[in-house]
Structure formats: C-alpha cells, structure tokens
C-alpha cells in the first residue's frame, strides 16, 4: 500500500468512526479532538485501528498520537503485526 492509498483508507476509517464529520472534511492535519473524539474515544479509535490495519499501537509512542497524520505515519513505519 503506498502512502496516498494508506492516507485515503485511514481517513475513510476515521470518518466511519466520527459522529459529526465526514471524510471530505478530514485532512492529515485534523486533530482527533477537532473531529469530536475525546481522550477515551481516541483510545477506542486506536483499538479499532489495530484490527482494521493489522498494527499494534503499543508502548509510549502511542501517547503522542494526536492527529490523522500521526496515525498514518505510525502505520507506515510499523509493519502489520497482528491479523484481524
């Protein structure tokens, strides 16, 4: 999957979880809090993303994920480790 394709998939995925925004208004710069996700919602979002993208959001670096672009960067740098 190239980065553009990954970006599209992550945005579609986040749009499917967001309550108040659709995919067209989400960019890589969108922060989770601006998309209506509070801190617990964000934990749930990352949990669901593990299943959807086969990655494991583990360890301290996860705490720094704040935006859509952060998730895309993380997934692109971490090869799939789990199967859904």
């Amino acid at each position: 999957m190239d980065i553009a394709e990954l970006e599209t998939k992550v945005i579609e995925f986040i749009a499917s979880k967001a309550e108040t925004v659709d995919a067209s208004s989400i960019t890589t710069a969108s922060r989770f809090e601006d998309l209506g996700f509070d801190s617990l919602d964000t934990v749930q979002l990352l949990f669901d993303a593990e299943e959807a993208f086969g990655v494991s959001f583990d360890g301290e670096e996860v705490r720094g994920l704040r935006s859509v672009g952060d998730i895309i960067d993380y997934i692109s740098k971490h090869p799939p480790t789990i199967s859904s």
Partner: peptide, 8 residues
Amino acid sequence: QKKPIPPF
C-alpha cells in the same frame, strides 16, 4: 490471548 482489550 495477550491481545489488547476494548477501552470501554
């Protein structure tokens, strides 16, 4: 199974 559990 040592998998993470849903936060809720």
